[in-house]
Amino acid sequence: MRNTLPCVALVSILVLAACGKQEEAAPAQAAAGEAPAAEETLPEEPPMPSGDFRVVAVELGSRLDEEGRVAAPRDVFAPGDTIHAAVVGVGTSPGLTLSARWTTADGTEVAKAGQSLAPEAPTVASFTVSKPDPWPTGAYRVEVAINDRVVETRAFEVR
C-alpha cells in the first residue's frame, strides 16, 4: 500500500497558497478596513433603430457631386473652405436620426446637425459646415451618430 500522506500535504499547501494569493489580490482599501469602491456604471447608450441600417463610409471634402457624395475626398482644408461630410449608409429602417457633430481637437462643439431618415435603399446624407470668418488652423473631427449613438469619427485638419 502506498503512502498518500505526502501527496495530500502537497495539495493542501498548494490550496492554502492559492487562497492566500486571492486575499493579497483584494483592493488595498479592503485591507485597510475601508469599504471597496462601488463599481462605476457607464451611462446607457441611446437605442439603435430597428432594421439593419448601418454607416459604411464617411467622406470629407470641399465639394459635393450631384448625388450628394464628396467629389474629391480629403482630410486637410484651407481656412476659407466649406467642409462637407457625406455619410453613406446601407440597409433599411422604419425611422432614425442621422447626425453630425463637428468639434475642435479639445472637444469644443463647432456645429451640429441632424436628419430624420427612413432608408429603404443605400442612402447618402450630407452635412455641411462653414464659417463667415476663416477657420482657425488646427485639428478637428466630425462624429457621425445614429439616434445620438456615435458610430463613426473622422479627423481632419485646417492649415
Rank of each mutant, 00 (worst) to 15 (best):
A30Q: 15
P79Q: 04
D106L: 07
V11M: 12
T104R: 10
T123Y: 01
D106A: 06
V158H: 07
V11K: 08
D133Q: 15
A17H: 02
I83W: 05
E143N: 14
Q115P: 00
I13L: 15
Q22Y: 10
A35W: 09
V70M: 02
G89P: 10
A26D: 10
A72G: 14
M1N: 06
L14T: 11
E24I: 10
A30F: 08
R101I: 01
K21W: 11
R74N: 10
C7W: 00
P136Y: 02
G68W: 10
S12H: 08
T82R: 13
R63H: 14
P46V: 01
C19L: 13
V142H: 03
A121W: 07
L117C: 04
M1C: 06
P6A: 03
V56I: 15
L5R: 13
A9C: 08
S99Y: 00
T104I: 05
T128I: 07
G89T: 03
R54W: 05
V55P: 08
K112M: 10
G68Q: 04
L16M: 15
P73N: 04
T137E: 15
P49C: 05
E152K: 15
E59C: 01
V142W: 00
G33D: 04
G80R: 14
V56R: 12
L60Q: 05
A113G: 08
T108M: 07
T153I: 15
G95C: 12
R2K: 12
D65C: 01
H84N: 13
P132Y: 09
K112F: 11
T137L: 02
G61V: 00
T104S: 14
T97G: 03
D81V: 04
S12K: 11
A71N: 05
L60Y: 00
V142I: 09
R149M: 06
R69W: 09
L96K: 04
D81K: 00
E120A: 11
C7Y: 04
A32S: 12
S50C: 03
A145M: 05
K21L: 15
A100Q: 08
A72S: 15
Y140G: 01
N3F: 00
E157S: 12
V70Y: 09
R2C: 00
W135A: 01
A18S: 12
Y140Q: 02
R74V: 10
A38E: 08
G138N: 06
R69N: 12
P79A: 02
T103P: 03
L16E: 09
P73W: 00
A111C: 06
D81R: 05
L117T: 07
A37Y: 13
K112V: 15
V15Q: 04
V158A: 08
N3V: 00
R54N: 11
P46R: 02
R69H: 11
A85D: 01
E23W: 15
G80A: 11
P43W: 14
S12D: 10
V70R: 01
R159D: 13
D52A: 01
V142E: 05
G61S: 03
E66T: 12
F53N: 00
E39G: 14
A113V: 11
D65Q: 02
A9D: 12
R101L: 08
A121S: 11
V56E: 11
G33V: 01
A145W: 01
V129K: 01
A28G: 08
A9Y: 02
V15F: 12
V158Q: 03
V15E: 04
A85W: 02
D52T: 05
C19R: 08
P119A: 03
A57G: 02
V70T: 12
S99L: 02
E152D: 13
A85R: 05
P136Q: 13
E45N: 13
T128H: 04
